[in-house]
Design a protein around this nucleic acid. Structure first.
Lengths: 211, 211
DNA sequence: CGTCTCGTTGACGAGTCTCAACGCCGGTGG
DNA sequence: CCACCGGCGTTGAGACTCGTCAACGAGACG
């Protein structure tokens, strides 16, 4: 599906889950006053939209940020799988818990830290996740979204995102060339970010179940 | 356990879950610079701490806001239950998804709305949840926490929480008497809050499985 | 070459934080 | 029974951050 296409708008009764094969995709929420909050940036390999299985209408809007390929996982068969296959049930439960942790980190970052700390956290976090799927160099990453969308993640206006990014380049933390970002000073970025990077691989206690 | 006692600090290897029988309890995160974010206010009947099952060390701190009674659910037996009992697996998965939705709402509220909108959302949300457990009147609720802790939820300083609450009383939205709050104008509060209240009962599609 | 998206910059003002002080109230110890 | 004390709510003054508004430039694309 092309860039900017809506895979599923919020409020519909389609509560299927989706598997993101390739491309970037945002899960976002449109507020009553027209503000938008991006809840999660999804990268290839992510499972999407499963939150809405607990309510009657879909909670979040799924929008393609780049051209994407997704695979739909309808609700009913998913339910069957969970009930009949304990491994899959455990895997889904662990995935949901990981997403909760990611949301908790973003909530804390956006609610209690300065703009520069929020962007530092976002950059480090994205670099870590992109590395895992082999889409980032050791110190480089390509951000597939514009500064307005960055603002929709960290809770800032696009103008201010721009100012903070500029400050980060001026301070020698990063280099930018269009949407290509090179991280110069990991050390100082980690100090700026008030949230630790976490190891989200499957905890060893559960290896024997889902393996 | 008495007020202010730490049921479980973040960073420890105790990743048990807990069941809150009575009292109020906060799940919070301490940031690198000493700031605190309350991730969730837990009321009687809530399941706590299960997020940390997906990592090696506990992510959040569980602290009693009032005297509480909790029941510990050790990790290993919980894992056994999930694998052997599909109903429980599905129930836990749905619970985790509900918590994700709650986090998404709070994230959007804190990141993209004004202080008064955040507090309006918090009050309506708390009133809804307290009503469910029979601890709120039709238009009254008792907040068991102080204004500093309110600030730790909505991402404001205690001073500013106070000013906004004062404004809400002056505007005839609420009445306050110590920590007792009477909601005068639900209609306007709902307009102020940019996040809808959600029906979090078990979606009908799953009734036949977990019932 | 024209248009559109997006990044960039400046000026200005509202909103929020910080710092500080004070008062109320309930609990505690003399 | 009373004086003190600590926690908490309240208020004011001032600084500074961040949002708003506006304009311009660079690059992509048809």
């Amino acid at each position: 599906m092309p860039r900017r296409s809506i895979i599923r708008p919020q409020g519909t009764t389609d509560r299927s889950a989706y598997f993101l094969v390739d491309g970037w995709l945002a899960s976002s929420m449109l507020l009553a006053d027209g503000e938008r909050q991006i809840l999660k940036l999804h990268l290839p390999g992510d499972m999407l939209g499963s939150t809405s299985m607990c309510v009657e209408d879909a909670i979040d809007t799924l929008m393609a940020l780049t051209p994407v390929t997704v695979r739909k996982v309808p609700l009913a068969p998913l339910g069957q799988l969970i009930v009949t296959n304990p491994r899959i049930a455990m895997f889904l439960l662990l995935s949901a818990q990981k997403e909760r942790v990611a949301l908790m980190d973003l909530l804390a970052s956006n609610s209690r830290t300065s703009p520069i700390a929020r962007l530092a956290f976002l950059l480090l976090n994205l670099h870590q996740r992109l590395s895992i799927v082999g889409q980032a160099g050791s110190d480089e990453l390509e951000i597939a979204i514009n500064q307005e969308q960055l603002g929709d993640i960290v809770g800032l206006t696009p103008v201010h995102v721009n100012r903070v990014l500029r400050q980060m380049t001026n301070d020698g933390l990063i280099e930018r060339h269009r949407r290509q970002i090179r991280i110069i000073d990991f050390e100082r970025l980690r100090e700026l970010s008030k949230i630790p990077l976490r190891d989200m691989s499957i905890a060893s206690s559960w290896q024997h179940i889902v393996a």
